[in-house]
Design a protein around this nucleic acid. Sequence first.
DNA 1: TTGAATTTGTTCTAGTCAAGAACAAAATAG
DNA 2: CTATTTTGTTCTTGACTAGAACAAATTCAA
Lengths: 403, 403
Amino acid sequence: MKTSAPTKSVSSQTQGRNNDQVREHNLAAILTLLSQNKSLTRSALATLSGMNRSTISVLMTELQALGLVSEISPDETLQKGRPSFVASLSSEVAVFGVNIESKFTDVCLVTLSGEIIASQRISTPKLPAPQQIIESIAQTIEVLLATQSKPLRIGGIGVAVPGQIRLADGLVRLAPHLRWVEAPFGSMLEEATGMPVFVGNNATLGATAEHAFGAAKGYSDIVYLYSGTSGIGGGVIVGGELLRGAAGYAGELGHVVISDSPSEDYSGFHGTLESLIRQEDMFACLGLAADDERGLETALAQPLGIEAQAILESQSRLLAAAISSFANIFNPQLILLGGYLGAIYAADQTRLAQFAFERILSAPGENLHIRRAELGPNQIIKGAAGLAISALIRAPKSSSAIL
Amino acid sequence: MKTSAPTKSVSSQTQGRNNDQVREHNLAAILTLLSQNKSLTRSALATLSGMNRSTISVLMTELQALGLVSEISPDETLQKGRPSFVASLSSEVAVFGVNIESKFTDVCLVTLSGEIIASQRISTPKLPAPQQIIESIAQTIEVLLATQSKPLRIGGIGVAVPGQIRLADGLVRLAPHLRWVEAPFGSMLEEATGMPVFVGNNATLGATAEHAFGAAKGYSDIVYLYSGTSGIGGGVIVGGELLRGAAGYAGELGHVVISDSPSEDYSGFHGTLESLIRQEDMFACLGLAADDERGLETALAQPLGIEAQAILESQSRLLAAAISSFANIFNPQLILLGGYLGAIYAADQTRLAQFAFERILSAPGENLHIRRAELGPNQIIKGAAGLAISALIRAPKSSSAIL
DNA sequence: TTGAATTTGTTCTAGTCAAGAACAAAATAG
DNA sequence: CTATTTTGTTCTTGACTAGAACAAATTCAA
């Protein structure tokens, strides 16, 4: 255990606020509403935000001047009275989303609404070194930008890395599957591209993606659990915000102890969720390649053999134990299951829910829903892009898009 | 599982903000600084809050008019230059803290700084019914107010209940040790006393108490674990705010699954932390009464018998498993152990830390500290009072103290 | 003891912000 | 074509914070 004095953090609770921050907050409120709703009339924005018509007018003028919002006259009017302008996030601003895995790296160009408008995959047959993959990413970004028909302004780059990331500066502390240790990835990519870079853990970004664009849209408290080839991770949304913890390492939900079993996870810890639910067991039992997700879906949709049934039931019980714990800890509205855990849910929904609710207290259990994540393969990259998008949305005046 | 649509919550992220809220926020910032620091000069307030001297001047005038702050001229001046006024929270405003247990209920008068200035215990040989204990509390409040030498203005009543509490309205959903079910305690006490009432879970309030007044003062991310005669509970502070969850039931940290064991906790769940660390085992082994905390301290300070050693080691291992999980989930700066768990820590600190850090990832573990809670027996009641205090501090204009 | 330097409180002004009123614009309904 | 309804725009008002200028209260040095 450490002996030095713990680091205290001063909250913004004690910081003074002035008119500038009011304006910034109100601009962000409009942008947040637009990102949640695709397009809204001015009068709807006024109603939803609680602000006056005249204030909305001023704010919209400013957002249009910043190039973040575009307005059109409505095609059809269903009400009587003067028709209200329809506003939506500008399609001329975009961000890059990057997802780094051991065998490939995806780079996508994503609009502020979360739509992928261009995409390219960098294959890495050997494990990529940070400097090497950064050069490839920078090149790919150039290519993607050059092949766009209309000029785009870029808000930044969001990157998903399978490891422990210090959010403050995008330092990759440890990424076991990439064999990266203490790689200052964020600052390196920032230097290589000149764009603001935001780095996060891949499973955590799955959670923010589902929250921003997927099954958890509009919810304030969710727990997201994900299993992929690199183990089990997750992310938690608390009061609408990602649970970050002291330095951004929170959300390692695969490394919770749920059993006395001596079996070890990829970090060498025994009895954890990740040590016990090993998706490769099921893939092997069904005779599938380790990353054949489609094959898994079709195989699980059909009647299972005895061995596969046993694995499924065992894993349902284990997953249920973790779900129970997280329900009691977080009192979420929604627990989302992604990757292989979503497949377990789809195949064994009733039993999984039954096992889970056996050990959830009545009060936190009463409005709790368990669902499968819905974003699929682009989930993580959308979450990564979301990092850059939300940075832009939260500080529209200070961080105006470059290019 | 439920079939109705999950409840979504709209965050204040999308709500417009105006000048009124700026003032309210800045007043709250000053009060928060004063509650963290007991007394501060005006110039220190300006530095810490980042606001201008002139703004501080206006704010202090308003806070004095509200009767929430008092200022004195400093006794000694160490600097050259005009001496700055020394401000502190007014001692003429107080709140009531109430802690309800099965055998007794404590009612305390607590200043805004968290000092207990008067206290009275209501004994309840039989389990108290809600209506009955409310009458006793109302009477005790009258008595405590009448016996004060100087007149006090009262900001509200904070109540700690050992059960699942809906924070929004203080509804006690279930309090097994009191045998209360769906008791609208908050609104009942509000009606009986005419004061604003805030109700919370007792273990959760232990966390907020340590955060506001105790070992976790100034930290932003902490996990608090507590064991008492009614089982194991806890509370989590995330980014300086209590983790509430969708309806306020978050923080049931005793009901996390850590083992395959069939032993059951007080809610009938098997394999949970509460089911496995039973403090009565140790009390019985040492020949102590179930609530003899002092006896436990002295007994644990001396060499233990073989059986007690075995219990201690077993419980250390189990507690360590939970600590590991919470460190990986929350990445806190501090994990605090209260009640019997604090005693385990004191008796077996080295081994406990060793067991715990075996299964904590390197990054979340590196600035993590494990400590014993320091507030002792008045912890919960201070947390309860803290509910009313923070309500007053956060909305100083709207909720001005009554009486 | 006196005056310079320093720090802080107070007052006044300037600039920004949101709300609301008044008015203009653009649709529907008859 | 006119009345009604709804929305956008403009102008005024009130509230807020920041900053400048000045006054007040201390220390330090001569």
